[in-house]
């Protein structure tokens, strides 16, 4: 299998703080890998190293077979980067920004203009082509940022938290763009704090924590690895929550977690669902929601990194 991105033992320190502590990464060509983790996990540092913005203190990496330190210029000819910070010029228009990038990449004035028009059309920014970026909405800016990183038709694209700070609608727009890129054969490395985003877009997910890779796999694999199904119950009447919580504790032997009227408890015995249903019925309590589900990626992440209490350990807040 050919790898678009391959990194071994990347280390980066800022003074005493170890941002990356020996990270390996392999991304097959044409795939999307999601790098997931909280602030300070080392996601951005990884992207900055792979995109040749900084050098690793130890370890090495290649993009399309080219070393990121020794062959940095070749790597830069292969990659596109959209960072967390706006990388377009506020005072210039959408077209001017894209034409500038095209000119820098060696396109003729005419070709650069053509490419800009093409990208603006693809990113539904044609109407905004003549307006300064300062007038753009957050979603439009991010799309233009993405467009700017695509002017050179990169084979490997780095997206560092591409939807952070965007509203749900704008986030959907960016997801759509990424999906289209992938359909197209580009390799994408995407960092995100949104588990849903990684779940939606990535072929595989790598979980970072404190500069280390703590897990990787397909979204489904990760969910399974954390194991156990959970039972969720939402009593129709909110005042029944304490009583139902007590029942669940008795039947399952675990303290249920409560959030916004939904009780969650780990399931050890498949018969638990039926038992809970009977008890509720017997007590004359109705539930709007009663069912089994696999843990969400939120729970997967928390279980893997252990930063915050997992569902199993959480005491019911309102019991």
């Amino acid at each position: 299998m050919s790898y678009a991105i391959r990194a071994e033992g990347l280390v980066k320190k800022y003074g005493d703080f170890t941002a990356l502590d020996g990270v390996d990464l392999e991304v097959p060509a044409g795939k999307v890998v999601g790098v997931l983790g909280p602030n300070g996990a080392g996601k951005t540092t990884t992207v900055r190293i792979l995109a040749t913005l900084m050098r690793p203190d130890a370890g090495h990496a290649t993009i399309g077979g080219h070393d990121i330190v020794k062959d940095a210029v070749k790597v830069r000819q292969l990659i596109g980067l959209t960072g967390q910070f706006a990388s377009v010029d506020e005072t210039l228009t959408g077209t001017e920004n894209l034409v500038l990038i095209g000119r820098l990449l060696g396109l003729s004035r005419r070709d650069a203009k053509g490419r800009a028009v093409q990208l603006l059309e693809q990113f539904s920014l044609t109407d905004a082509a003549r307006k300064p970026i300062a007038t753009f909405s957050g979603g439009m800016r991010r799309r233009l940022d993405l467009a700017a990183s695509l002017v050179g038709r990169p084979r490997v694209l780095f997206l560092d938290e591409p939807t952070t700070g965007l509203d749900p609608h704008a986030r959907q727009e960016v997801w759509e763009v990424v999906r289209n890129l992938v359909a197209d054969g580009s390799t994408v490395l995407l960092t995100t704090q949104y588990l849903e985003e990684a779940d939606q877009l990535a072929d595989s997910i790598t979980v970072f924590d404190k500069g280390r890779k703590v897990a990787e796999g397909r979204p489904g694999e990760l969910k399974r690895r954390v194991g156990g199904q959970v039972l969720q119950v939402r009593p129709t009447v909110a005042t029944d929550v304490p009583l139902v919580s007590q029942m669940l504790a008795e039947l399952s032997g675990h303290s249920p977690a409560e959030d916004s009227g939904v009780l969650t408890v780990p399931v050890d015995d498949p018969l638990l669902v039926a038992a809970v249903a009977r008890r509720l019925d017997g007590a004359g309590i109705t539930a709007d929601e009663l069912g089994l589900r696999l843990p969400s990626l939120d729970e997967v992440f928390l279980a893997l990194t252990g930063h915050t209490p997992t569902v199993k350990d959480t005491e019911p807040a309102a019991a």
């Binding site: 070749k74 693809q122 038709r153 289209n180 359909a183 197209d184």
Partner: peptide
């Protein structure tokens, strides 16, 4: 922003990997 419109142009690489920047390019 449909898959059809975006497909063709993005795929093909145009840059020749020269690996260095000349003075004229600078």
């Amino acid at each position: 922003m449909s898959a059809q419109t975006i497909a063709a142009p993005v795929a093909a690489p145009t840059v020749e990997l020269t690996g260095r920047i000349t003075f004229a390019q600078t």
